[in-house]
Computed example of a mutant assay.
Amino acid sequence: MREVSTDVTSVQYAVLLVLEQRPGVSQRELGDELDLDRSTIAELAARMVRNGLVERISDPQDKRRNTLFLTTTGRELLAELKPRVGNVERVLTQQLSATERDTLRQLIDRLLIPLEP
């Protein structure tokens, strides 16, 4: 991830992507999505809140549930990082045909999908 950013880790980037796609997701759901335990996701969320990238809001119906949203700064950072990630992906896969790149992406996506019980 150093080629993309020296300040944002790959896990933080993944958090930004999830929150862009699922604003208001709970910390628990985010942890499940990224396969991180409760203490890790709580620490990660707290750090990203301190850095102004994420806003944490208590669910009005369940005060034990914290929901997460991207801040304007978080959205701007994600918009800045996405093209860099795309460039790295292009460099890493430049020796592959378009079909091979599609197949690789499909296989990676399958690996990242949580197993259904």
Rank of each mutant, 00 (worst) to 15 (best):
L68S: 07
T67M: 09
R50N: 13
L36Y: 06
F69C: 12
R64E: 11
E55F: 11
E55Y: 15
P114R: 08
V4Y: 00
P60G: 07
S97C: 13
L81K: 03
F69H: 09
Q61V: 13
S26V: 04
R105H: 02
E89D: 04
Q94W: 14
L70A: 05
V91Y: 13
G24N: 05
A42E: 12
A46F: 12
R65P: 04
V54F: 06
L34K: 01
G31A: 04
L92V: 08
V8Q: 01
R50I: 15
T40A: 14
L34C: 08
L111D: 00
V91L: 15
R22M: 10
G86T: 15
T103F: 08
R110Y: 05
R2N: 06
E55M: 10
E89L: 12
V91I: 06
L44E: 07
D37M: 09
L107S: 05
L44R: 02
N87P: 00
D37E: 05
R38T: 04
Y13A: 10
V15E: 09
I113P: 00
I108S: 06
V8K: 00
R56Q: 15
G31N: 05
V88E: 09
M1G: 00
L30P: 01
S97A: 11
L34W: 10
T99R: 15
S10Q: 08
R65M: 11
T99P: 13
V11F: 07
R101I: 14
L70E: 06
P23Q: 10
T103L: 15
D59C: 01
L70W: 11
D32M: 10
I41P: 00
R28D: 05
T73H: 13
N66A: 15
M1W: 01
V15T: 06
G86C: 07
R56W: 01
R50L: 07
I113V: 00
A79Y: 02
T93R: 09
S58T: 07
D37A: 12
G52Q: 08
V18I: 14
V18R: 11
M48W: 01
L53R: 00
D102N: 14
R110V: 03
L34I: 05
R105S: 08
P60A: 13
L17E: 14
E116F: 09
S58M: 05
T73V: 10
A14P: 00
Q27S: 14
L115V: 14
P114Q: 06
Q106S: 11
G74V: 00
E3W: 01
V15K: 03
T6P: 08
L53D: 02
L111T: 05
L44W: 02
E20I: 09
E80M: 05
T67R: 13
R50F: 12
L70H: 10
L44I: 04
A42L: 01
E76I: 14
D59M: 09
D37H: 10
L107Q: 11
D62S: 15
L44G: 05
L78V: 06
R50K: 10
T103A: 12
R65I: 13
D109T: 05
A45L: 02
T71R: 09
V54R: 04
R101A: 07
D59Q: 06
V49R: 10
M1R: 03
E80V: 04
